[in-house]
Amino acid sequence: MSDNEKSRTPKDSHYARLRRAHRERAHPGTAPKRPARPHHPGEAPPDAQVRLYGLHTVAAALANPARRAHRLLATRNAFARLEIAADALPCPMEIVEPRALDVLLGSDAVHQGVVLEADPLPQRRSSDLADTSLVLVLDQVTDPHNVGAILRSAVAFGAGAVIMTTRHSPQESGVLAKAASGALEYVASIQVVNLASALEDLTAQGFQTVGLDSDGAAELEPSLAGGRIALVLGSEGKGLRQKTRETVSVLARLEMPGAIRSLNVSNAAAVALYAARRHLAGRT
């Protein structure tokens, strides 16, 4: 950390700005946080809770008024890097040694000295997208690292929601949240039971549903139309399911002149989001 970074006050810090941004975006009448229940060190959280870890992930979660936090575990150095006073936290906090977090999460988790035990975020509905012009739809993308990276790209390009199937999609977890690097707190994550019905609902709301397929008849950019776009991406191995292919408005491909003709789903999502955002910006 540089001398300039050390001399910054919490008011001017990156994480303080995150907290202010979340407060400004909070809806009026947000329910106050309920008192955290007693929790003993080393006790596993209830099944309904998640353990979020990593500095960016935890800072964004603490700043999110929609996130109900229960307990923060942090090393002294990590807590100092969060740049938030203990009395400003929305939950109890314990200073711990790094080894305690290794034991709690496993040695493979890159926790950066901080863990937050919290409730999963409230789910939204696919019909609740009135102010959204760009969404992503994932057809059974199962890898939490891929979904986390997709969430990060969705926030970067201003997508309003990421829609996933209830089955064959990763649930909210520390691994997914770490891969998203805080993006989980900024974009609505919506789970649906029947993806085909959700796509039909999006069409009824005025979205052009565009299925990404390497064998699509048309290139993506000239296929985009209208002022609301839903990009639909298939699973890591099989791509879009047949029912999904039949339901989307159009099947399109990313034109790739190189020897490799396909991308990892998270990379394909980022490229498609960039193209869709340029199309929407051109309309305005």
Results as ranks from 00 to 15, higher is better:
L52V: 02
D47W: 06
P98F: 00
V114W: 01
V155Q: 09
E24C: 04
G258M: 03
V187E: 12
V192N: 11
A44C: 02
S107Q: 14
L105K: 02
R34V: 12
T203V: 02
S214C: 08
A196Y: 00
P170N: 10
L89N: 05
R17N: 09
A60R: 10
P144C: 06
H22A: 14
D102F: 00
A198L: 14
A179S: 15
Q123W: 00
L240M: 02
S223G: 09
G106S: 08
F157S: 08
D139L: 10
E5R: 14
S133N: 13
T9C: 05
A149L: 12
G160A: 08
A16N: 02
A198F: 14
G227A: 14
E185K: 00
A161N: 08
L184V: 14
G234C: 03
T75S: 08
E94F: 05
G237S: 13
A198Y: 11
V155T: 15
D213N: 08
I150F: 12
Q242S: 07
A269F: 06
S173Q: 11
G106P: 11
A149D: 15
V155I: 09
A180W: 09
P170W: 06
R34F: 04
V265I: 08
A198H: 14
A21Y: 00
A78C: 06
R37E: 12
A48F: 01
S2Q: 04
I229K: 02
A48W: 04
I150C: 11
S235D: 08
I260E: 06
